[in-house]
Nucleic acid binder design. Structure first.
Lengths: 233, 233, 233, 233
DNA sequence: AATGAATGAGTCTTCATTCAT
DNA sequence: TATGAATGAAGACTCATTCAT
């Protein structure tokens, strides 16, 4: 039997789940391939740029759809011509931001075997501290927004673009130097944890207390030395 | 210094509306020479207890004034007889909670000179990882609430009750062991940063990935060993 | 292990269903027994009365939450102190309305064995036409609102309060008169369908065309006669 | 006559905003001496076809202007080159649909004097039940859209193309058979009302409860027999 | 002093319609 | 003449806070 035109009355008894209509709309729409129709790359970009700017000065949770429209110089509704959800737009901006920051992190990292190990580690540490400094506020803000976090992780995890990419890079360097005999025989995973943890702690202290770059820079070296030499007697 | 991306965490970027309201309230109250008038310590305690319980199971941002009233078995309005603001109550609970967790952290920490240094450090590390594990969700949640964060830091910084108390304790232990010759001649401040950063990173990884206690326990030891022996060749 | 305070971070990876938060709120709240807290019967009544009045002049779908507040002389938010959802309030009004209308229908219906059968059937028919007239616009409007329809049917079906109550009453009368030999040996179910259908059609014609009561009254009798005597040669 | 509860169905109780907008539009257009300017019959047809297809699977109220554009494979704006309003387009589709369904109803109806009367009536009844079944969802959906309903009725009533056309056909058959003495001397208008009401009730029951064709078919015959023989003793 | 009903600004999202290209 | 991006009003719902009782 072909779909009866009465179907929508007969299904008046739809199960309670129908109450979720609103929340499901985005998914339904996507399922029907009826996503947002906007197709002007400029506008799309304007929107992402706007969120990007807001992200630089506000918590994710403090960015309203109206804020975005104002910042982009557009009207309240445009957003929904380009993204199924405010969150989808925010995630797009988040991903772009994060990619840019990871790329910035990787720029100019020293290669194993070259230069002095301590200097190389300081370079790595400074880069990582920088990444942590820029990244942390956003990440922290994200943690209070499960929905957003979920979407973001989904987007970022796929292609090895996540934080893991930075971790792997560090682990790679350490392993390579071990292979060259320029570093000892330690547990690389544990070392990466100490390395990133220390720098993150430093970044957090620096930004919470407003310590100047310089002093923080000194401390990076002190930490690297401690990690290299160990605390043992 | 250019505007730090952490600004919105550190500098209480209130939403305009809230700022307005709050300012208005404060103003009104001041004009009338009034503050909260409640005077029953039991009720005050009931309110703080309620928030404490809610804090154990929810993000700060997910606790509504009504939730508090329900949990305390009191009516919606009492809160304002004892605190100027919902946030003031929450901060009171936060401070009490934090103090209790710090005290729990300090319980049973080994003394310098006793037992084996590695074992002692592992004990410290486990205690700190525990503190980080319990504390972090709340702290992270707090970071998304500039107003709250601001009030909390104001309250906690004053009397050396903050995280610094835990840091000092670790620093004290390390210095003492150095004095006894059971640890080498490293930069204690750097070592503390390393120590707390590593454990925080471990706590974060553990909770994000849901790793079992056991495995995480193993990793504590691996990290302590790395810290003791260093990564040098 | 007791519920970790980190749970809400660890569950950052919640499944996509979490996106439905908003829609689910009502259900969650109900599940926690944390329903709306309003408890002034007067206000509750005011709200239901307001919806009742609006229902008498508008389609369900044309009643906004603001309309309700205005009509009740209350502010926009009250509704949610008494009902989890606008729909819940509307259903409450709908149920009350429907019950009242059914009761009105049953009032003064003749008993089997008394008076003349034709007169009795006319009385039944008039009562039913009245019920259909009052009820139909609302029922029809409801059909376009699956959510509301679902809630309404759930509420109404439970206790035999639905339309079936009216049908049963008619069927009961017909069967009783058959038993007394005052009606022939027809298929009661078919007769009920005929009976209610005819009257509903009459009600619809009357209201769509604005025919006067009187004329419509004449037609009731004509229909009852036709039903009694049949169209056969 | 007191205000009928059906008023909001019959009398186009537009929402204020809509009325405003529409009035404004009409006014503007009139002032400029402009109407829809489109002149390609193919596009006009494409639009109507699209709505027709959507009407077969959705409530009127669930059809957005964008849906129509997508379904027609045209852009969002074209609609307004051919119709003053989305509603005007929908009405055009509605009218065409309704005409087609009436024509389908009339196809293959038995002639008076031929075959057996009961069989003929069953055939009429089945055809009418079919018409009701296909038509009702749309009609019901329409009733929640006063504006649309109003436009539709205006369009349909003019030229005797409305439901009346079907009623007349049935009345014609009954009168003819009466003339031939194959049916008794009943009030034809009343009989038509019973006839269409019974079948509509059957259609409604069938679609609400999802009863199978077969069973419903049986009931058609039971009803026709009841109508023929009457309920009298 | 406690109560809890009432308030209303603010949030995200939808969609008919306009208009520059 | 077709396009489709942009508009913005409107809708349901939340929640900190006030204030009459």
């Amino acid at each position: 039997m072909s779909p009866s035109p009465f179907d929508h009355l007969a299904s008046a008894h739809r199960r309670i789940a129908d109450a979720h209509k609103q929340a499901l709309n985005a998914h339904k729409a996507r399922a029907r391939g009826e996503g947002p129709t906007g197709s002007s790359p400029e506008i799309r970009e304007k929107l992402i740029d706007a969120v990007d700017r807001l992200l630089a000065e506000r918590q994710v949770s403090a960015i309203t759809s109206r804020d975005i429209a104002r910042e982009a110089g557009l009207s309240d509704g445009v957003l929904y011509n380009y993204f199924a959800t405010k969150n989808d737009l925010v995630v797009a901006a988040l991903v772009r931001r994060f990619d840019a920051q990871l790329t910035e992190f990787e720029r100019g990292l020293p290669e194993s075997g070259e230069g002095e190990v301590e200097e190389n580690l300081v370079a790595y540490a400074r880069a990582w501290r920088g990444l942590a400094t820029t990244t942390m506020p956003t990440v922290v803000g994200l943690m209070s927004e499960p929905d957003l976090m979920h979407l973001f992780l989904e987007e970022i995890h796929d292609e090895g673009r996540g934080m893991q990419r930075a971790f792997d890079r560090i682990a790679g360097y350490l392993t390579a130097e071990q292979g060259l005999g320029r570093l000892g025989d330690f547990d690389v995973e544990a070392a990466v944890t100490t390395f990133v943890g220390s720098m993150a702690a430093l970044a957090l202290q620096g930004t919470m207390t407003g310590r100047a770059e310089v002093e923080s820079g000194e401390r990076v070296r002190a930490i690297i030395r401690t990690l290299l030499r160990g605390m043992g007697a």
